[in-house]
Simulated scan of single mutants.
Amino acid sequence: MFPRSMFESEHEQFRESVRKFLEAEAVPYHEQWEESGQVDRSLWRKAGEHGFLCPTVTEEYGGVGVDFRYNAVITEEISRLGLSGLAGLSLHSDIVVPYILNNASDELKQKYLPRCLTGELITAIAMTEPGTGSDLQGIKTTAVADGDHYVVNGAKTFITNGQLADLVIVVCKTNMDPEAGAGAFSLILVEADSEGFQRGKNLKKAGMKAQDTSELFFENVQVPKQNLIGDEGAGFFYLMGELPQERLSVAIGAVASSEGILEHTVNYVKERKAFNRPVAAFQNTQFKLAELDAEITAMRVFIDRCLELHLEGKLDAVGASKAKLLSTELQGKVMDECLQLHGGYGYMWEYPVARAWADARVQRIYGGTSEVMKLIIGRSLIA
C-alpha cells in the first residue's frame, strides 16, 4: 500500500480499536439490518460507550476535542468493511453535530451535545424536499414566528437517520419576502417527539439497505425560538460553511470503499478459475487491476491532501467539490470494473462487490450531485 503520512501512531491505534469494534458489533449483524431496513439502536449506544461518536466535540460538552482525522478513521473503517448501514453514524458525527457545535448557542450545546456523544440522541438534517433536490434555495418548508415559538410546516424527503432520529435540524424559510434570497433560510432544531412531527415510511432504496432513509412531515409543529441555530436568516450561510466537511467525508468514504473492494477482487480472481486457469492469470485481469490500483492510489494522495487542508482551515468549497466529484466518480468505476471481474457471481447480493456496487451509486447524488460539483468548479474558473 502507498505510504500515508496523514496519520500518527495514536490515530492508527484508534483505527485498530474501531476496526475490532466494527468486526465484533456490526459485521455479524449487517445482513439482518439490511432486512429490517435500519441499524439497531443498541449499536449507537455501544459506539458512544467506546468514544466513536462525535470525536471533535470539546471537553466542556463531554467530548475529547480531537481533530477531524479521528472522524476520518471511523469513516474509512466503516467504508472499507462495506458497512453502508452505518453511514448514519458518519452523518451524525461529521455533518449534523458540527452545525450545533460551531453555530448554536451554549444553551443548546449543553442541552444536546452530551447525549449526542453517548448515542442517546440520534440526529438527522432535513434539507431535501420533494421537487427541490440539490436546489436548496427552492425550499418551501416554513417556520413562522408566533410569540416565543416558531410554527414549522412542510415536508422533507430522503432524510438519512429519518426513522431513528431523536433530533432533526430542519432547513426552513423564516423570511417570506421573495427578495430575501439566501437570507430567507434558518436552521431550527426539532425534537422528534414534538406534536405535529411525523415520520413517513422507511424508503426502499437500490443500495444502502441497512441505512434508514425517510420522509418527514411537519404540521404546525411548535418549536421554542431558542432552538434556532445561530442567527435567523443565516441558515444558508451556515450550510455553505459546513458543506466542505460533508463533501470531504463523502470523499474519504469513497476512497476507502474503493480500496476495500479492490482487495476483495484481487483475492477473488486469484481463486476463481476460467478455462482451467485462475482469472488473475489473464492479462486483461491484471491490466484492469493495475489501472484501478494506480487510480485509487492517486486519489488517496489527493484526498489525504484535502484532509490536511481541512485541518488547516483551508479547504474551500471548490476544493471540496473536486474531492467529492473525482472520488465518487472513481468509486463508481471501481465498483463496476470489479463486479465485471467477478462475472455472474458479482451480481449476487451475497458477494461484497454487489452490495458495494449498489451502495456506491448514491455517492454521486447526495451531498450535492456530480453536476452541481461541476457547476461550482466551473464557475470558479470563469469568475
Rank of each mutant, 00 (worst) to 15 (best):
E232V: 11
Q283H: 15
K270E: 12
L315T: 05
H11T: 01
A234V: 07
L309R: 04
S380W: 09
D193G: 04
E215F: 02
E16I: 08
L117W: 01
A210Y: 02
R364F: 11
E371C: 07
K270Q: 10
N161D: 08
G181M: 13
P114H: 01
Q283L: 15
G230S: 10
S9M: 00
T75K: 11
G133T: 02
E215R: 00
V279F: 11
L311K: 12
A274C: 13
G119K: 08
L86S: 03
G85C: 02
L243N: 09
G313F: 05
E371T: 05
K201Q: 11
V64K: 14
N161G: 07
L22T: 04
G319I: 00
N102Y: 14
F2P: 08
Q222C: 07
M176S: 14
E291I: 00
G367M: 07
V66E: 09
R247M: 15
E10Q: 09
K20M: 09
R300Y: 09
D293M: 06
V223T: 06
N71Q: 06
A24S: 14
Q363H: 10
L239D: 00
Y268C: 09
R277T: 14
R361L: 12
A360I: 05
S79F: 02
Q283D: 15
L292C: 13
V301E: 07
F185R: 03
L167P: 07
V57G: 08
K270R: 08
G343W: 07
K109P: 10
V318C: 09
S214C: 14
G133Y: 03
A104V: 04
K140T: 15
Q226H: 12
P28D: 05
P278H: 12
L375E: 08
L228I: 08
D106K: 14
G346N: 00
E107R: 01
A104C: 01
R364N: 13
E312Y: 00
K273P: 09
Q245I: 08
Y61A: 01
G183C: 11
Q110Y: 02
N175W: 06
G332T: 00
D336V: 04
S36R: 12
H30L: 02
S186H: 05
G37F: 13
N267H: 09
G88A: 10
R361K: 15
G48E: 06
S186Y: 03
M127L: 15
A323I: 00
E246K: 08
D67R: 09
